[in-house]
């Protein structure tokens, strides 16, 4: 089943990527990133079945980082929303050169 698991991982990852590329809602993009992280986690778990538990350890780390990222990212989104009254990224270009 390893091949199937990896294929599923790739598919989920691609869906996440397409979501990031096509959506403009900051929270949607954020959730797409979470989907991509999950896809990678699936790869880790699938490979750990063959190559030892280290893959699962990495999943733990990924989850931690994802949690931290969610906390900070959502805080940023709230801060932006307070200023701009929107989370549409097309309207947010403070970093424009």
């Amino acid at each position: 089943m390893l091949v199937e698991a990896l294929a599923l991982s790739a598919l989920l990852f691609t869906i996440g990527v397409i979501g990031v590329l096509t959506r403009r809602n900051a929270i949607m993009i954020f959730m797409c990133v979470e989907l991509m992280l999950n896809a990678v986690n699936l790869s880790f778990v699938a490979l750990s079945k063959l190559y030892g538990a280290a893959g699962q350890v990495f999943v733990v780390f990924t989850m931690t980082v994802a949690a931290a990222e969610a906390a900070v990212g959502l805080a940023i989104i709230i801060a932006i929303f307070r200023h701009q009254r929107t989370v549409n990224l097309q309207n947010i270009n403070l970093l424009k050169g």
Binding site: M1, A5, E34, N41, V45, K49, Q56, V59, M63
Partner: peptide, 18 residues
């Protein structure tokens, strides 16, 4: 799927944390 791949702990974490 994690459970099926013998990663029960991770599956639990997935449900709890994610």
């Amino acid at each position: 799927l994690y459970v099926m791949l013998d990663a029960q702990f991770i599956a639990t974490m997935q449900v709890l944390v994610y």
